[in-house]
């Protein structure tokens, strides 16, 4: 999928950045049929961040677009696992031997 646009989130997915991130995510999604999220630098994710991810995923599905999380940080992976949402997002989760923290 060459048209895929990749968005690298640099800030933590927390309530403090939620407002900015919502605009950024929704705007990014609007401009592409397929959005890839790189969350490998997200060291913290809270409920606000989690529901943002759900929102974007749902929004993408509603418009027939694709959203893929291509890289999980341990925090993100753990939270998605905990909330039993890994299946909902359906992204392959990479567990490397080095990624332990």
């Amino acid at each position: 999928m060459s048209a895929a646009k990749r968005l690298v989130l640099k800030d933590d997915l927390t309530i403090y950045h939620a407002l900015d991130q919502k605009h950024m995510l929704i705007d990014s999604l609007a401009g592409t049929p397929s959005l890839e999220l790189d969350l490998s630098q997200v060291t913290e994710i809270d409920t606000a961040g989690l529901q943002l991810l759900i929102l974007v995923k749902r929004e993408a599905a509603r418009h027939g677009k694709e959203l893929a999380i291509v890289a999980h940080s341990p925090a993100v992976r753990q939270t998605l696992d905990f909330c039993n949402l890994a299946t909902y997002f359906g992204d392959p989760v990479l567990i490397t031997a080095h990624e332990q923290g």
Partner: peptide
């Protein structure tokens, strides 16, 4: 033992306020 996240009450993107909480479990 099991946990299900219920985000169903979250409004569409335009109305969704990222600082409000819409989740249930």
């Amino acid at each position: 033992i099991a946990l299900e996240t219920v985000p169903d009450v979250m409004p569409p993107a335009a109305e969704m306020d990222p600082e409000s909480c819409y989740l249930g479990f």
